[in-house]
Design a protein around this nucleic acid. Structure first.
Lengths: 204, 204
DNA sequence: AACTAATGTGGTATAGACTACCAGAACGGT
DNA sequence: ACCGTTCTGGTAGTCTATACCACATTAGTT
């Protein structure tokens, strides 16, 4: 990896971690972008180069990519809803660090200790909540692309969009309930419960 | 009704209609709030009194209230998903003006000729899309409140949130497909198809 | 080592959304 | 006709985000 790429990734990480710290301490709206930039030791303009909007300071993560990878690795047996739902439960296990963490996951820093803070910020701040829903729209697209092998089947595509949207919506309810209770419940189990309540099925 | 209330409702309607016209003509981002205010013959500050944010100029409608009313009027038989899904199909009939419009609906101006324009704007403009998802969060809450008679049952509340979220997510997919095809398909039928694809059930 | 191209960084100026505070105008009930 | 309430407008300001510019650092080549 380039020296440039490494430095870039490092400053990006530093900016985001300072941002989250300040947002938790002082609140999102009360913290200006200039505050974050100053705390991270960069100029406001450099910050905007790494994160196009203030909201991205909280929302940027790698779960979209992870979900798409996990979906693609899933056997095509079973209903769309079951495939997608099971994948979401599995990704939640990785995110909270329970269950079968592989070495690759740990090294990618996906087991995220700031996860609860980020979810809480997203729920309590209107601007962040809105952008979060929209980023899940991108997640839907990633899921549909991973599921649809045959792009010439518009009906399959439609059903994939519906299944992805409904599963993510159920997961969001579980995520909100989990954050409300300060991360007490087991998130993967809670997501599985939500999916079961919606689709009357079992999710691993 | 007061003269004041009538005037207020009238200026509100005038502002929103001028806003939609300008947004469609010039694009959302290329139209400033000052432009809209000037076109509607009011000051920018008056506009902000009626619509707290620029996004509300597009997103403000009365479907939340309508959905909640229709849900409350639904018999409590059948599953949560079926009750909510059927209601959404019914409300879509009213929105596009097909089916059983009552005189009350027509007088309330719910059969909305600008509906397609608004959906198109919402889908194509990132800021609007995000806020639209979040306004559906408010819709979810309205549905849950309408469904949950017994507020002391946390499990029912959880299942209601999940059902509302999943149904609205499926409806959104149908809404996007409908707008993509310029309002050609029958929206209520498309929503019913989406719900059927997600829940393997029939929706009136 | 030196030169070039690409890239990261910072400064200034600016647009536009939104708010706080204050002053005047119109309406509703007495 | 009178007074409190509500609607409206103006000014000044904050903050997010962008456009344009110049400088510094790195990567690849000779």
């Amino acid at each position: 990896m380039d020296l440039r790429q490494r430095r870039r990734a490092e400053t990006q990480r530093a900016i985001q971690s300072h941002a989250l710290r300040l947002f938790v301490e002082r609140g999102y709206d009360s913290t200006t972008v200039a505050d974050v930039a100053h705390a991270a030791g960069v100029s406001p303009m450099t910050l905007y180069r790494h994160f196009p909007t203030k909201e991205d300071l909280v929302l940027t993560d790698q779960y979209d990519r992870l979900i798409a990878e996990q979906i693609a690795a899933t056997p095509a047996a079973g209903s769309l809803v079951h495939r997608i739902g099971s994948t979401l439960v599995q990704v939640a296990r990785i995110a909270v660090g329970s269950g079968a963490d592989t070495a690759a996951d740990a090294s990618a820093n996906l087991s995220d200790e700031g996860f609860l803070d980020r979810v809480r910020l997203m729920i309590s701040t209107p601007a962040l909540r809105a952008r979060h829903w929209d980023s899940q729209f991108a997640t839907q697209k990633a899921i549909v692309d991973a599921v649809c092998d045959d792009p010439a089947d518009p009906d399959l595509e439609f059903r994939a969009w519906v299944a992805a949207a409904a599963c993510l919506a159920a997961m969001n309810v579980a995520l909100m309930r989990w954050a409300e209770q300060d991360g007490g419940p087991d998130l993967p189990a809670l997501i599985a419960d939500a999916l079961s309540a919606a689709f009357a099925d079992e999710f691993a």
